[in-house]
Design a protein around this nucleic acid. Structure first.
Length: 862
RNA sequence: GCCGGGGUGGCGGAACUGGUAGACGCGCCGGACUCAAAAUCCGGUUCCAGUGAUGGAGUGAGGGUUCGAUUCCCUCCCCCGGCACCA
């Protein structure tokens, strides 16, 4: 054994031994299966600390389960389609396919150098036709079933580049490359009926008890089930249908509002140029909900009148930009008295505000100022004619009943969730397998002709999808009539790719089926790990897709992920410079030098390369788009994989977001060196592999008790709590004690042998290379991962005396020693007798004494 | 704007079920070793007062419940994530 720790030498050697032994193949072993999965990365170029953290967490859990005797599947793959490859192509002229595959090659090497127990035989990339053919195959099944369908949807349109923009490419309402104000545009797209599964997606959240509560809450709110009513308002010869969650407030409706895209608005604008101009105005700006929700509420009267279905009163019909065509019916009945947005709008445009729900005793309704309790459902109806005096619930029921009687409405359940639009007007994605024929219409590509292969040599230039101009791709005979036809050039949302990759890992090389019988052997995923930013969309789509595949009898599970760990994001400062057109160039924090004041606040940041100033853009998640990803490679080169792994697990608990800082890497490095030299010192005196001490006493007994307490804690932290930082802290603490312990007799050396063997196994999931190496130095054969997890010796845990804290009026005033489970009276007596305690009680009357067994005494004295 | 989460020493964090606030680590200070430096080892380190024993304050701000609150409740401030075409 070498005297000093040299990761540069041991890590590659151990990695090649693992490879030779096929140590990480999922087929290996015969224990219970454990499928441990991390969200696959987008191959953006280099690993960043967010990846590092994610995959280290996954590896720690995998290796811990491996040591517990499980047969572990830890796969890896690439979410390889997507926008950044097109952006890179525009910047460098390199085809997205080449850029993506180069990135994958580089990142695969990086992952391998980190020593993850990944079964590389199962690697997949979503841009491979072998993978995406099954997207196409399944899409056609969904089309047959009517789950996939076509309708129009709204996109961001850049009028200069004549192209559709992603929300990310819309900056302050303008196109990112052209700076032109974007417009909303309606185009035909394919959708999946996720709303058909809304009830089940909501209900089965209750079964996901291995998921964080916050994720379940977010998904439930996203699905957004609400009970309400649809109500029809006559408007000339037309009917305006609305959905409301508050039919009880119907008597307070004072106007109607429709979305700018509503057919009624279009009709009303035909001979009203002013209204037409307003509707055109509403087309400006981005499509994202955040954009719509934060824009100023604007409206215009159409001049049309709608008839209140119960009172017959005439209500003005307005066009309003806060009403969304995509939600509900694209029209609302406005009740300014009890809806905050309607109140704001009514105040602005001087529309009547009528209170129809009473407030608590003594509260008066203020028509000039909104208060949150106006929206409450605690009061009774008033100003509502025959319904006056009813509770909101009773009023709801009575009004819905009367509407049903008049054929003017009915109770209805509405979801916030909208159908999933999967068409993307982009090149670098999975082609949608449809052929458009002038005579036959939209014809599915026959199953035998799959996959529709994406040509890999095109280079996007920012002006639309290059597939449109690729004649070899577009021109094809119609499968039905054989006459010339055109292929669909839209590709699929990349969320389709990531909605089932975890199933494909179970049979990645099967070229005859999407999934097979091995899939159900591994599913569901026992532990899924990924960023909290995926809490809603990716996880919801993956759940939905799994249910779709279940309904095609392809999988047997209802839910794909039994247990979920949502990793907090790794954040870093962003830096940018703005050019004369307001376009921002982002600089990597590694290339920026920062000056701070004595409180650590940033004063000035300059680019190291040219010394010129750059602007701080705030702390954000590490991402390609803001170029603030920190590459762990430099640290791995300097300290080795184990140090970086140890540090990234020690820095914070996994669920918490983490602002990146390198301070502390030294500490991880020092710990591993101390570990190494501690084992070395012991080995110098001769090893005693696998031996356990006889009865211990004095300091040896204390050390052994701490050892077994530590074994218990670390196992609990790895297996149940997933707090790797506290597990590591406990190992460090024990190692500090162990290094200070001086063996006096042979039995002490047996204890030290037991202790080092335990420490090496406890830390092995986090720092596998050094653990393998030390395991052998300690005289043990084989891999530490075959050695099993150390067992707690209960007899070592027994204590004779405990320290009990004594408080006087809630403040700690002293400590006493007592045997475990001492009788209350005895502890109380000892507490009152303690010198400093007595000083504080002196001259006062003891009113009460609270004794928490084996822990604490609180004396209440006045 | 809406939904979800977070805020504890100079810094990352610990305190798991309402019971010793600050484990472990970084940084800093002091010491040992060294011709010297690095590395390493030992000791100290929430703030204020005190040589010290010890006392007072303290977990974003304010209020409440409790013998006792970082933990539970209410109001507010700030930060982060998501908002359906970033992944």
């Amino acid at each position: 054994m070498s005297e000093t720790y040299n990761p540069g030498r041991i890590e590659p050697a151990i990695q090649s031994r693992w490879e030779q032994d096929n140590a990480h193949r999922a087929e290996r072993g015969d224990g219970e299966r454990f499928y441990c999965l991390s969200m696959f990365p987008y191959p953006s170029g280099k690993l960043h600390m967010g990846h590092m953290r994610n995959y280290t967490i996954c590896d720690v859990i995998s290796r811990y389960q491996l040591m517990c005797g499980k047969r572990v599947l830890q796969p890896m793959g690439w979410d390889a389609f997507g926008l950044p490859a097109e952006n890179a192509a525009m910047a460098n002229g390199v085809p997205p396919a080449q850029w993506t595959r180069d990135n994958i090659a580089h990142m695969r090497n990086q992952l391998k150098s980190l020593g993850f127990a990944i079964d590389w035989e199962r690697e997949l990339a979503t841009c491979d036709p072998d993978y995406y053919r099954w997207n196409q195959w399944f899409f056609l099944k969904l089309l047959e079933r009517g789950i996939a369908y076509k309708k129009t949807g709204t996109v961001n349109w850049d009028p200069v580049d004549q192209t559709v923009l992603a929300n990310e490419q819309v900056v302050d309402g303008c196109g990112w490359r052209t700076g032109a104000p974007v417009e909303k545009r309606e185009i035909p797209m394919y959708y999946l009926r996720i709303t058909d599964y809304a009830d089940e997606l909501l209900a089965s959240l209750d079964d996901l008890d291995g998921w964080p509560e916050r994720v379940r809450t977010m998904q439930a709110n996203w699905i957004g089930r609400s009970e309400g009513a649809e109500i029809s308002f006559a408007c000339g010869d037309e009917t305006i249908k609305v959905f409301t969650t508050r039919p009880d407030t119907l008597m307070g409706a004072t106007y109607m509002a429709v979305a700018a895209e509503h057919p009624l608005a279009t009709r009303a604008a035909e001979n009203n140029p002013e209204l037409a101009a307003f509707i055109a105005e509403c087309q400006k700006g981005g499509t994202s909900e955040a954009d719509v929700a934060t824009q100023e509420k604007l409206g215009m009267d159409t001049g049309l009148k709608a008839i209140h279905p119960l009172t017959g009163a005439e209500l003005p019909v307005w066009v309003a930009n806060y009403v969304l065509m995509g939600y509900g019916e694209g029209a609302i009945m406005a009740v300014p008295g009890h809806d905050e947005r309607d109140f704001e709008f009514a105040l602005k445009y001087d529309l009547p505000i009528v209170q129809v729900i009473s407030l608590p005793e003594g509260r008066a309704y203020d028509h000039q100022q909104w208060h949150d309790d106006y929206a409450a459902k605690d009061g009774e109806l008033l100003n509502s004619g025959q319904y006056d005096g009813l509770s909101c619930q009773k009023g709801f029921e009575a009004i819905v009943a009367d509407l049903e009687k008049n054929n003017a409405g009915r109770g209805r359940i509405q979801f916030r969730l909208r159908d999933w639009g999967i068409s993307r007007q982009r090149y670098w994605g999975c082609p949608i397998p449809i052929i458009h024929c002038e005579d036959c219409g939209d014809v599915p590509v026959p199953e035998d002709d799959l996959p529709v292969v994406l040509p890999e040599d095109l280079v996007p230039d920012g002006a639309g999808n290059p597939l449109n101009r690729c004649e070899e791709f577009v021109n094809t005979p119609c499968p039905k009539c054989g006459r010339p036809a055109r292929r669909e050039t839209d590709t699929m949302d990349t969320f389709v790719d990531s909605s089932w990759y975890f199933l494909r890992y179970t049979c990645p090389h099967n070229d005859r089926a999407m999934v097979d019988e091995t899939t159900s052997q591994w599913m569901p995923v026992d532990q899924y790990i990924g960023g909290i930013e995926h809490a809603i969309l990716h996880l919801l789509y993956a759940r939905f897709w799994t249910k779709l595949m279940r309904d095609e009898s392809l999988v047997s599970v209802n839910e794909p992920f039994a247990r979920l760990l949502t990793q907090g994001m790794v954040l870093a400062e962003t830096y940018y410079r703005e050019d004369e057109f307001g376009r921002k160039t982002w600089y990597n924090p590694a290339d920026v030098d920062v000056e701070r004041d004595d409180k650590g606040r940033l004063i000035r940041a300059v680019l190291a390369a040219d010394g010129g100033e750059v602007q701080p853009g705030g702390v954000e998640k590490m991402a390609k788009s803001k170029n603030n990803g920190v590459d762990p490679q430099a640290l791995v080169d300097q300290y080795g994989a184990d140090t970086v792994r140890l540090f990234s697990m020690f820095a914070a608990p996994p669920e918490q977001s983490l602002e990146w800082s390198e301070a502390g890497v030294e500490g991880a490095w020092r710990f591993l060196r101390r570990l190494w030299s501690g084992v070395h010192a012991h080995v110098e005196g001769g090893v005693l592999p696998g031996r356990v001490p006889e009865k211990t006493d004095g300091p040896a007994r204390d050390l052994r008790r701490l050892l077994h307490e530590t074994i218990g804690k670390v196992g609990d932290d790895f297996g149940r709590r997933y707090t790797f930082n506290t597990a590591i802290a406990a190992v460090m603490e024990f190692t500090n004690h162990l290094n200070r312990f001086e063996p006096r007799e042979d039995n002490d050396r047996l204890l030290v042998q037991e202790a080092w063997e335990s420490v090496v196994r406890l830390i092995a999931p986090v720092t596998p290379h050094i653990a393998e190496s030390l395991w052998q130095s300690l005289g043990r054969d084989g891999s530490v991962f075959d050695a099993g997890w150390p067992a707690v010796d209960e007899s070592a845990l027994v204590r004779e005396a405990l320290t009990i804290v004594v408080q006087v009026n809630g403040k700690v005033r002293g400590r006493i020693q007592a045997a475990p489970s001492s009788p209350k009276e005895l502890v109380e007596e000892a507490a009152l007798a303690e010198e400093n305690v007595a000083r504080f009680v002196d001259g006062k009357t003891v009113r009460k004494v609270i004794v928490v067994p084996d822990k604490l005494v609180n004396i209440v004295a006045t």
